[in-house]
Design a protein around this nucleic acid. Sequence first.
DNA 1: TAGATTGTTAATCGATTAACAATC
DNA 2: TAGATTGTTAATCGATTAACAATC
Lengths: 211, 211
Amino acid sequence: MVNKSSSFEHIPLPTLRRLPYYYNILCNYQNNGYTYVSSSLLAKHIGIDSTLVRKDIALTGYIGRPKVGFNTTDFKIHLEKFLKMDKLKEVVIIGAGNLGTALCKYDGFKIYGLNIVEAFDRDPTKIGNKIGDIPISHISKLSMQVKKRDIKIAIIATTGENAQDTANILVESGIISIWNFAPVFLNVPETVFVWNENLAASFIALSQFIN
Amino acid sequence: MVNKSSSFEHIPLPTLRRLPYYYNILCNYQNNGYTYVSSSLLAKHIGIDSTLVRKDIALTGYIGRPKVGFNTTDFKIHLEKFLKMDKLKEVVIIGAGNLGTALCKYDGFKIYGLNIVEAFDRDPTKIGNKIGDIPISHISKLSMQVKKRDIKIAIIATTGENAQDTANILVESGIISIWNFAPVFLNVPETVFVWNENLAASFIALSQFIN
DNA sequence: TAGATTGTTAATCGATTAACAATC
DNA sequence: TAGATTGTTAATCGATTAACAATC
């Protein structure tokens, strides 16, 4: 007998990526005074089947009320805990160019527990500057800082050319999750999770639809 | 009998998103003097099965040489045509904040045929300014400009709150592909394709792997 | 030729959808 | 109660992987 709400029932990646949307919709309905939402309402917003919504929710261990739906406040709190949004995670970013700067300044991340604490770059003219509250340090300090602060997540916002070298440093420093904005696949050990945010690939997909 | 290289054999989205990576790897090997690459080599870089690579390539209509592999130059040119990278596509962006600015300045898009021609914002202090070569206009001019220039693709880099209003204007103006960076699902007609680039959702997925 | 690699059909796997019983 | 909604099992669908024939 497996305890569903405990540790790791493997959550499919598609489900994991939909959960933040449910959270968003819940926030909206809560703000507008709704105390319950139905799976079909959530489904309509996301454009999927309501069965899939109920399956997703079941995977998080939350239980709804037949005939009524899901309590907005309870489910919202449940999701915050389930997704560990309530725990702030220290993250470093490598590459303080336009994209790196935008990511540092983007405050929509805060509620999800993302806290960028330090940026790294090669460009000597940038070292010592700050992006908002975030200091920019030289890439040579990266490994030491990651180890010292026991940081587990890193964002790569370098060029494609520098991405693999950066990844090597990160892996060696103990990083286990890499958010990669460079348009290359990274060669890392199987124990390291990489999420590729390939903007160029997205655009390609998008532009195929205009014939 | 269906002519494979012609028009629309439906290409699965996962395939479509891998093609730009093949293109990248091809460029690298070409630059390093390789005239042929094998499917297993491509597969190794991307971390998938070589069969899947050959299937992806077959879907583009390109034919390799048994015993030898795929000609880097030929296949590269083939992909450029297949993905219509050689045709510059005029695109508008809505939201000239940090993210919008970063996207405007990101020059990695150029080779994929992405040409951002105008940015739009509500903030009167930004109107008339430029991001690089790209002028910032008031949102009230959006519809007219899209129609006049017959633009088909738009990037939404607004806040979540303004995203749906923006989408409504875009749909009404004739936009058929929307690249949405706002963390909300957009309600649009079925004829309009939306690609959601939900950064928060990506981070959530990423952070689940650190236990 | 022998062997390496492509191209393709069949099998597997996992996510989504359909059907329906359980619930209040 | 009747009806709406949840929760769950079975069926479907599509992408990936395995097996293997075709090719040079």
